[in-house]
C-alpha cells in the first residue's frame, strides 16, 4: 500500500526532473547496485542501504511524529521496504520511494495512533537543558509547513547538506534550496532571532 502511494506521489513530485525511461534502467547509482544485489539474494547489501538512508528516514519521521516513536518506526519502515523492494520500478529512485513510504507511514501513525505521552529521559543537567531546548525548537519547526519542516530537520538535526537532502529524498536541488531558505526565514521569525539581531545591531 505504502509503496504504491509512494510511487504515485513520486511520479507527481519528480515528473519534471525524471530522466528518460531508457536511462532509468541503467543501474548508475551505488544504491541501484545495492538494490540489484538485495534482489539477487544478498541480504547484507540491505544493511548498507539502511546505513545510507536511516538518517533521512529518521529526520522525516522526527518532523512529523513524537520522538519516542521514531526509532521503532524507522525499523518498521526499513522492514517494509525490504519486503516490497521488488515493486520498486526504478532502482535509482530508491530514496524518493523510501521518503514517500516514510511520509505515508507518519500520516498513518497520526491516523491510527492513540494519545501518547513522551517519556522524559534521565540525563545530566546540562544535557537535559540542551535536550529541552532542542525539543522546544523542534516543536517550532514542526509548526512550519510540511515542505519546510522536513528540509529543516534534515539540515539542522541530521546534519545533511542541501545537495545530500536532494539526492536522498529525490527532490530537485532547487526546491530543497528554496525550502531551506524560506523555512529558515520562518524559523528565525518564530524564534525571534531576527528581532534579537536587530536589537543587537
Amino acid at each position: 500500500m505504502y509503496e504504491a502511494e509512494a510511487t504515485a506521489d513520486m511520479l507527481l513530485m519528480t515528473a519534471q526532473s525524471a530522466p528518460a525511461p531508457a536511462h532509468r534502467e541503467a543501474p548508475s547509482s551505488p544504491e541501484a547496485l545495492l538494490i540489484r544485489a538485495v534482489l539477487a539474494g544478498n541480504r547484507d547489501s540491505f544493511a548498507s542501504l539502511y546505513e545510507l538512508y536511516a538518517p533521512m528516514v529518521h529526520g522525516i519521521l522526527l518532523a512529523r511524529v513524537p520522538r519516542t516513536e521514531v526509532e521503532d518506526l524507522v525499523q518498521d519502515i526499513f522492514l517494509h521496504a525490504f519486503k516490497k523492494l521488488a515493486t520498486l520500478r526504478d532502482a535509482n529512485a530508491f530514496g524518493g520511494w523510501l521518503a514517500m513510504i516514510t511520509r505515508n507511514r507518519a500520516m498513518d501513525f497520526h491516523r491510527y495512533a492513540r494519545a501518547t505521552i513522551e517519556v522524559k529521559e534521565e540525563h545530566a543537567i546540562g544535557d537535559r537543558r540542551k535536550k529541552a531546548k532542542a525539543e522546544e525548537i523542534l516543536n517550532v519547526i514542526r509548526s512550519l509547513p510540511d515542505a519546510y519542516r522536513e528540509t529543516l530537520v534534515l539540515r539542522l538535526v541530521e546534519g545533511m547538506t542541501g545537495p545530500e537532502i536532494a539526492s536522498r529524498t529525490g527532490l530537485t536541488a532547487a526546491s530543497v534550496r528554496v525550502n531551506l531558505h524560506r523555512g529558515m526565514k520562518l524559523l528565525r521569525a518564530k524564534l525571534g532571532m531576527q528581532e534579537e539581531a536587530e536589537t543587537r545591531a
Binding site: E51, A54, F78, L79, K84, L85, T87, I137, L156, G159
Partner: peptide, 24 residues
Amino acid sequence: LEDVLETLRYQPLPFELPAAVKPA
C-alpha cells in the same frame, strides 16, 4: 541551532532482518 538540535540526531542502531523475511 545545529549545536542544540544535534542532540536529537539519529543514533546508528544495528538493523537485523528476520531470517524468515524475504523480498516479495
